[in-house]
Amino acid sequence: MATAVLRASLVAVGLVWTLAVQTVQAEDVKRYVVEGSRAAGLESCVEPTERIRRQHMEFIKHQRIATVHEGIRTEKYSLSGCVDCHISYDQERVPRPINDPDQFCGACHAFAAIDLNCFDCHAAVPNGARLDATAIAAHRAAGVGPLVQSRRDGEDH
């Protein structure tokens, strides 16, 4: 009986803690949106905040099949979209890799203790050609190579 009570109270504490943390994190998120980006003008992300927060991995997983196997590039869930809107810059306007432990993706995944290996392969900063035909053409016309070099993408797994 005593153990059951103890267990129940532990669960309760855990739940309260989770809720509290989510509230705090909701505050935090605001500073992660790039000014002037698509997300800055929106009430929430491409889905309501609660939904995207819980299911973003499912969304981008579904999207990746459409993109890699079918070549569809216009779906709203896009990893480079995450990076575009939620990247942050240091004083010299150099973007910080989004999976750094104090950055948008990295902070939350570090907190949730989930290994984030998207950025083993994917660019963790907006890098080079933006995924937009006119922009690609413009860059190429201007002879601009990759816009910025990230310093270090992702932890080695």
Binding site: D120, C121, H122, A123, N127, A129, I136, P146, S150
Partner: peptide, 11 residues
């Protein structure tokens, strides 16, 4: 791999 291009993920 570090500094991948957005258009060409590789790792």
């Amino acid at each position: 791999v570090h500094g991948q291009l957005t258009a060409v993920p590789r790792g």
